[in-house]
């Protein structure tokens, strides 16, 4: 199976209860699957959480990951978002060190990316940026020469686009265990 690794974004609908997160995290570590990012928060239904995991693997591994997730009893539904047309976002808070001569440059970069300055001090700006992973990475790359003091990212979340015409390929793997 000389397949190559591809990135997958998986949305997991899961019981919002004690220990559920560790069951999923433990599954990934126990079976040696990798997690690039993970984010989790309650949904409209407070008894249910939505967890988004970004992972990498060949088709064989991704199939196992999805089956294994489905097998976790607290997991209600698993969708490989990247199988369909989707929107993804991540937010980053970036604290940039700014010498007086760099402050204008920092603001200009923030402006280009439609990022907001959410805090400022005489020697720093804290910039909030939201976008897909490329955008977030791009602003980080540009700000890095100025000196990034601290960086916090939410991890990526994603949602399927609502199909406009019929026939949009979505694959939601029915839960079966």
């Amino acid at each position: 199976m000389a397949q190559h690794d591809t990135e997958h974004i998986i949305n997991i609908t899961i019981e919002n209860k004690f220990g559920a997160l560790s069951r999923v995290a433990g599954l990934f570590s126990g079976r040696g699957f990798n997690i690039e990012s993970l984010s989790v928060a309650p949904t409209l239904d407070p008894t249910v959480s939505m967890m988004t995991i970004v992972t990498k693997g060949d088709d064989w591994i991704i199939e196992q990951i999805i089956k294994q997730l489905n097998k976790v009893i607290d997991v209600i539904k698993v969708v490989d978002i990247s199988e369909s047309d989707f929107v993804e976002r991540e937010t980053a808070l970036i604290k940039v060190h700014t010498r007086p001569e760099d402050r204008a440059e920092a603001l200009r970069i923030a402006d280009i990316f439609r990022a907001n300055v959410v805090d400022s001090s005489p020697t720093s700006y804290t910039i909030e940026v939201t976008g897909d992973v490329r955008k977030v990475q791009a602003i980080i790359n540009l700000l890095q020469p100025l000196g990034i003091k601290e960086l916090v990212r939410t991890g990526r979340i994603a949602i399927m686009r609502e199909p406009i015409r019929t026939g949009a390929a979505t694959r939601s793997l029915a839960k079966a265990n």
């Binding site: 899961i14 019981e15 976790v72 009893i73 607290d74 997991v75 209600i76 839960k175 079966a176 265990n177």
Partner: peptide, 8 residues
Amino acid sequence: SIRGYNPT
């Protein structure tokens, strides 16, 4: 009934 557990 456990919503996340329905063996086939």
